[in-house]
Design a protein around this nucleic acid. Structure first.
Lengths: 177, 177
DNA sequence: GCACACATGTAACAGGTTACATGATTTT
DNA sequence: AAAATCATGTAACCTGTTACATGTGTGC
């Protein structure tokens, strides 16, 4: 995936309702966003620079709370415009989920190859652990109806992620003996 | 995803049992492999060159069947070695599935935002169509037990893909009104 | 004869990771 | 005092896409 620059929209989306520093954004990628997107700080800081040059965000540097020097970014009207345009554009074309485990499995031809069971066990561990993590997130963030209504999109994708993990685990169980 | 060079192993894996041309490989990415990986011919031809330089594959150019000039590639012993090493290495770390639709949804906060239903309908169409395609593939390739045993890994991942699409559709239905 | 599939390549560029760098503040 | 976290950046490099480029064989 080398060309669509979706990071741009993620940053605009994250800055939409609240000014944030590059570091704040970086941390979001380690938690919340990390479940469905990744980006390193090096890329984030560069992209922020570029977005500012393009006039989609504006920055404000200074000593906030008299401590470290920070640079806060806010979305401009122009930025809000491109974000909305993106949100309204139909996505089309399902993405290909590049999964190394799937790939390895594809190249194992023999039903009785011992590696299949080893690989399935490893995946079982990983997916059970991921499911547990996702469930905790859901409980933490979306206990009540109000929190769901406030961040409905996030609730929906978390729900999808959980269903997906359950299904994945069901599949593994079917073939793991 | 810019560094693991998994294409290398895909090419080795595809060449393992049968010599193929760059064009043959390209076509595989348009069908079979295309369901879980993508690569353009420009990248394939370059990677083949590199793999040959590194001694993992060898080539044979000529007029096969007295028609077009083609270059066939075969895996060397060295290539087979690195392929096996990769297959035996535990994959670890679940991949992040970068999905633009998921991303857009994440940034829609209001439960009653009309765009949610539009997006869900679009995804419904896409996933129903994908599911139908996958089912056809399964019927075509894995009708009987023998074909399953011969390409068991492929059968497994096709089965997973089908379950995944069904689950995805179930999720959409739950929230689409 | 024309369109399409076969067949192979190169070049420019964009997106993303790793590594290099630096310094302040907070926690142990 | 040391370690961890906060905070921001640059440079080298690799992967992968898009576009450019060229020529042959086959089916209509």
């Amino acid at each position: 995936m080398a060309q669509k620059n979706l990071l741009k929209y993620i940053l605009l989306g994250l800055l939409e309702n609240e000014k944030k520093t590059g570091y704040d954004l970086k941390k979001l990628f380690e938690t919340e966003i990390g479940e469905f997107w990744s980006a390193k700080h090096s890329q984030i800081y560069l992209e922020l620079k570029r977005l500012e040059e393009q006039g989609y965000i504006s920055s404000e540097t200074g000593l906030f709370g008299n401590k470290l020097e920070k640079t806060y970014y806010t979305v401009t009207d122009n930025g809000r415009k491109v974000l909305n345009e993106w949100e309204e554009t139909p996505t089309g074309e399902l993405p290909i989920n590049k999964d190394e485990f799937i790939l390895k499995l594809y190249f194992i031809h023999d039903k009785n190859d011992k590696r299949i069971q080893e690989m399935l066990s490893e995946q079982y561990r990983l997916h059970v652990s991921k499911l547990s993590h996702l469930k905790k997130r859901k409980n933490l963030l979306f206990k009540d109806e109000i929190s769901r209504s406030k961040n409905y999109g996030h609730f929906l994708i978390l729900d999808l992620a959980i269903r997906r993990e359950k299904e994945y685990i069901g599949w593994i169980k079917q073939y793991l003996h």
